[in-house]
Amino acid sequence: MKRLLIAGLGLAAAAAFAQTTPVGLWRNVDDKTGEAKAEIRITETAGGLSGRIEKILRKDAKPDERCNECADERKGQPMVGLEIIRGARKADGKDVWEDGKILDPENGREYRLRLTPVDAGKKLEVRGSFGPFGRTQTWVRAQ
C-alpha cells in the first residue's frame, strides 16, 4: 500500500511538473478581438524549444496560406507547419524560457522571446521584444 501511495505521488508530481513547461499545444489569441488565431505546438529539441503552427483557427484563413512576409528560409512556406519559435532555453533557477526568437508571420519580423508558464501551466505568457519595445500575449493550453 505504501509503495502505491509513493508511486501515485510521484506520478502526480511528474504530471504537475510537465504542465509548468511551455512544451505542449497552445492556442494564441488575438489581442484586439479575443478570438483564437492558431494552435502552436511547442517541443523541446537539442537547440532549445521549437514551436510550429499546427492549425490556423482564424475564420478568414485560407488553407494554402503562406508566409509571404518572411525574409529568411521560411519565405513562401505554408503557414501550417511553419516554425515560429526557435531556441528558447530555460533560465537557471526560474520557470522562464528565454534567449530564443519568435516570428510574427503576419509581418515577417523576428523578436527576442521570453516564455513564462502561469496559472499552474494552463496559460503561457509569450513576450516578444525588439530593443526596449515589446508586447506580451497570453496563450491558453489546448486540451
Rank of each mutant, 00 (worst) to 15 (best):
R141I: 11
F17T: 09
D92Q: 14
A71T: 13
D60Y: 07
I56V: 11
A13I: 13
D119I: 02
L49N: 01
T116F: 04
W26D: 01
L115E: 09
K122T: 13
R52W: 00
F130H: 09
R74V: 12
I56A: 02
A142Y: 05
G100K: 01
Q143R: 12
R112D: 15
T20F: 02
V126K: 02
D95F: 10
E44Q: 15
G24D: 12
Q143Y: 06
A38Y: 02
L113Q: 06
R27N: 14
V126N: 02
F133Q: 02
T20I: 06
V140F: 02
L25S: 15
R3G: 09
A14C: 10
V140Y: 01
A142F: 06
D99Y: 05
Q19T: 08
K101I: 01
G8F: 07
D31S: 12
V118R: 11
D64M: 04
D95C: 03
E65P: 00
L11M: 13
P78W: 01
K90V: 04
P78N: 05
W26H: 04
A13G: 10
D104A: 07
P22M: 08
W26N: 02
E106P: 00
L25E: 14
G108R: 06
L11T: 12
S129K: 08
K62R: 10
L124W: 04
K101V: 00
R41A: 09
R89E: 14
R109D: 12
R89Q: 14
A7M: 12
I6G: 06
F17I: 08
G34S: 10
A61E: 00
R58C: 03
E69I: 01
D72V: 12
G48Y: 01
G10F: 11
A15T: 12
R27K: 15
D99F: 04
E69S: 11
V29E: 05
T45K: 15
F130M: 13
L57M: 07
M1G: 15
R114M: 11
T136G: 10
G47H: 01
E98G: 04
G81K: 05
D60E: 15
A71K: 13
I40T: 13
G8K: 08
G10T: 14
L25D: 14
L103A: 11
G34E: 08
F17V: 09
K37Q: 15
D92F: 04
I84H: 10
Q137V: 06
